[in-house]
Simulated scan of single mutants.
Amino acid sequence: MRYRVGVTDFVRPAVPPLALTLDLDDTLWPVGPAIERAEAQLHAWLRQHAPATADRFDTAGLRALRDEMARTHPHWAHDLSAIRQESLRRALAQAGDDVGLAQPAFEFFLSWRHRVEIYDDVVPALERLAARFPLVALTNGNADLQTIGLDRWFRSVVSARSFGVGKPNAAIFLEACRRAGAPAPRVLHVGDDLALDVRAALAAGLQAAWVARPDIHADVQGAPEGARHVVRHLGELADRLGA
């Protein structure tokens, strides 16, 4: 049965969820601005510590090298940290700088990558949701919830880097369900990406909610028929779940 609430229709679940899994980047915070700031700060760090590399590669050049590493090393698709660090090692080597700087350069980048601006609705919604459901973070990225300050609401974190495969592989969803302590049909996965979050969760046997934030998704067209909820922010989802 369909009900119209808020911005779009949703299908009321046949069974209520017992647990939630949540994506991180672009669901709890906008990741693009954080990455851009981190890349700009990284280039300034290289200007000081590896000037030949900074001269040879501007920010766009470093990003292009990182993208090339991702294309040519598909076995690292689940490990964004390895891709970024190896791209820095290659940049340093090509410029004739000390390749041993790749590790501290990456650590400096990562410190800035964690300076995210959490959406205003996230903390109040997590407080409500965590009071009712076990929450497990499920991410392809390399953000650390403890560093960001949101870990208190999560029972566990399943990252592609630590697990060995990422979304849309069903195995990572099922691992998140295991850590949440609920079978897949009773777990609601919450995320912003229609392919990696919504469709992949449905294919793995979970329920799915699409968080279509206005700054990322101008409209809410295209959600799969099986999506249980389509919301603009997490507070709306908490309302729908009675949290």
Rank of each mutant, 00 (worst) to 15 (best):
A201D: 07
A184R: 07
S156W: 07
P214R: 11
W210V: 06
G205F: 13
A204K: 11
G164N: 10
A200W: 09
R179N: 10
D193F: 00
D192I: 00
R161P: 02
W210Q: 08
D193V: 02
A204R: 11
P185H: 07
A195G: 07
V157P: 03
P214A: 03
R179D: 11
L202T: 07
A171R: 15
L194G: 04
A209P: 02
R199L: 12
R179Q: 15
A171G: 08
I172A: 08
R199F: 12
F173K: 10
D192F: 01
P185L: 01
V165Q: 14
S162K: 01
A203W: 13
R161D: 00
A203N: 14
G164L: 02
G191S: 05
A176I: 13
V211Q: 06
V157G: 10
P168Y: 08
R199V: 11
E175A: 13
K167N: 04
L196T: 00
H189G: 09
Q207Y: 00
Q207A: 06
A208V: 03
D215H: 15
H189E: 05
A176C: 12
A160S: 14
A182V: 06
P183H: 05
A208K: 02
L174N: 12
D197K: 02
D197R: 03
F163N: 11
A176F: 13
F173T: 08
L188R: 01
G191N: 08
S162L: 12
A170L: 09
V211W: 04
L206D: 00
A171E: 15
A212I: 00
G205C: 07
K167H: 09
A204Y: 14
A195L: 13
S156K: 12
G166E: 01
L206V: 05
A201N: 07
A160H: 05
V198A: 07
H217M: 01
A203V: 12
P214T: 08
V187W: 03
L194N: 04
